[in-house]
Amino acid sequence: MTAAPDWNWHGGAVEAAKRHFGGGNRPWLDLSTGINPHCWPGADTIAIDWHRLPEREALAGLEAAAAAHFGAAPHHVCAVPGSEVGLRLIGRILGGAAHHVAPSYRTHGEMFAGTAPIARGEARAFAGTLVLANPNNPDGHVTDTASFDAMLAGREGWLLVDEAFADCDPAASVAHRVQDEAPLIVFRSFGKFFGLAGVRLGFVIAPAPVLAPLRALLGAWPVSAAAIAIGAAAYRDRGWVEAMRERLFGEAAALDAMLGRHGFAPKGDCPLFRLIDTDDAYDLFDRLARAAILTRPFADQRRWLRFGLPGSGEALDRLDAALAYD
């Protein structure tokens, strides 16, 4: 079958899947995204003052809390209404030509007016402006420290690192290396690790000369009062963050074991999702969708299928049963 553009473009297209596949009254199991199925639990308990505009001091507090979480200096951190917006605005601010490591997140190829894909093996020696994700989406590859050292040494262009999935393992991050003198910009997402994608909150970590025009474009109120309050509290909840990191790696190992029992070799170092390579990826996507389980296919990589974490033993068992059905 030919998958509809809705679920080829991004994860989370459950309503489009319902319209296409039906499924009756069965609840859908959405494994199409890399969003943590376990939301940070404090969001519903925070009182939001919807009557007032966000205060400058509250925004600064959010950015300071995020900076401490990232290991970056607060004056290098700028809140944006989702990392997607940050990526696109920085591309416009920097301008010029760029390359993006492929395969990767689709927006990386749309940030600059002139951009071209480059293979991961060529990125280490490439000196021009380069966009890459770490961990990478969709294959979960993590770029090692030595490679980043090589890419930053004697750099002629910018190195733009999308760390949307880096919260699971802080050792993968280079946010702490952002300086005013370094050609390095890092992007972070709040919603993926904290399971609150609807908050629409992200961050650009960049040299001050880059953040100045970015803040000018964003204006006085770049994010909502709810994003400020929820984000600041969540980033300060160190106990939850550490416990969740351990939990996610454990659940990813259980998903790996289950997929392995069905003959698949899952790959990826990000515990929020796993990618498999199989001859019948589209047939498998179709079969799972008809069982009301949505996964993530790729129009340009028809052997690939990505699975998000099921989030519970019951959901894992449901996926297990659907994969066993012949």
Score class of each variant (00 low, 15 high):
residue 176 H to F: 03
residue 269 D to S: 10
residue 241 V to T: 15
residue 183 P to D: 14
residue 266 P to N: 10
residue 162 D to A: 12
residue 269 D to M: 06
residue 151 M to T: 03
residue 150 A to G: 02
residue 213 P to K: 05
residue 159 L to Y: 03
residue 189 S to Q: 02
residue 273 F to G: 00
residue 273 F to A: 02
residue 243 A to Y: 05
residue 256 D to Q: 04
residue 139 D to K: 04
residue 196 L to K: 11
residue 140 G to L: 00
residue 146 A to L: 07
residue 240 W to M: 07
residue 197 A to S: 10
residue 152 L to Y: 08
residue 196 L to I: 13
residue 212 A to R: 15
residue 221 W to I: 06
residue 250 G to Q: 00
residue 220 A to D: 15
residue 193 F to N: 02
residue 201 L to Y: 11
residue 172 A to R: 12
residue 167 D to K: 01
residue 215 R to P: 05
residue 182 A to D: 03
residue 159 L to I: 04
residue 245 R to G: 07
residue 178 V to A: 03
residue 149 D to G: 01
residue 207 P to I: 12
residue 228 I to K: 03
residue 245 R to T: 01
residue 228 I to P: 03
residue 135 P to C: 12
residue 222 P to L: 15
residue 249 F to S: 03
residue 242 E to D: 13
residue 232 A to Y: 03
residue 261 R to F: 01
residue 197 A to Q: 06
residue 141 H to Y: 12
residue 261 R to M: 04
residue 212 A to F: 02
residue 260 G to A: 02
residue 163 E to C: 05
residue 185 I to H: 08
residue 256 D to G: 01
residue 224 S to A: 13
residue 259 L to Y: 01
residue 247 R to F: 04
residue 228 I to V: 15
residue 160 L to P: 14
residue 170 P to F: 02
residue 168 C to H: 05
residue 184 L to I: 12
residue 167 D to S: 14
residue 155 R to C: 07
residue 144 D to W: 02
residue 237 D to Q: 11
residue 171 A to R: 13
residue 259 L to C: 10
residue 231 G to Q: 08
residue 169 D to R: 12
residue 253 A to R: 00
residue 220 A to W: 09
residue 156 E to N: 12
residue 152 L to K: 07
residue 147 S to H: 06
residue 237 D to N: 05
residue 136 N to M: 15
residue 212 A to H: 11
residue 145 T to E: 14
residue 135 P to W: 11
residue 272 L to I: 01
residue 142 V to P: 00
residue 180 D to G: 13
residue 250 G to S: 03
residue 176 H to Y: 04
residue 237 D to E: 10
residue 133 A to F: 07
residue 142 V to F: 00
residue 140 G to M: 00
residue 140 G to S: 03
residue 170 P to Y: 01
residue 149 D to T: 09
residue 171 A to C: 02
residue 170 P to G: 05
residue 144 D to Y: 02
residue 193 F to E: 03
residue 215 R to G: 07
residue 187 F to C: 11
residue 176 H to V: 02
residue 175 A to M: 10
residue 173 S to L: 02
residue 258 M to S: 01
residue 236 R to C: 10
residue 153 A to N: 11
residue 272 L to G: 02
residue 160 L to G: 13
residue 223 V to Q: 09
residue 182 A to Q: 07
residue 153 A to W: 08
residue 216 A to H: 13
residue 263 G to C: 14
residue 164 A to E: 12
residue 212 A to W: 02
residue 204 V to A: 06
residue 252 A to Q: 00
residue 222 P to V: 15
residue 228 I to N: 05
residue 143 T to V: 15
residue 197 A to D: 10
residue 187 F to D: 12
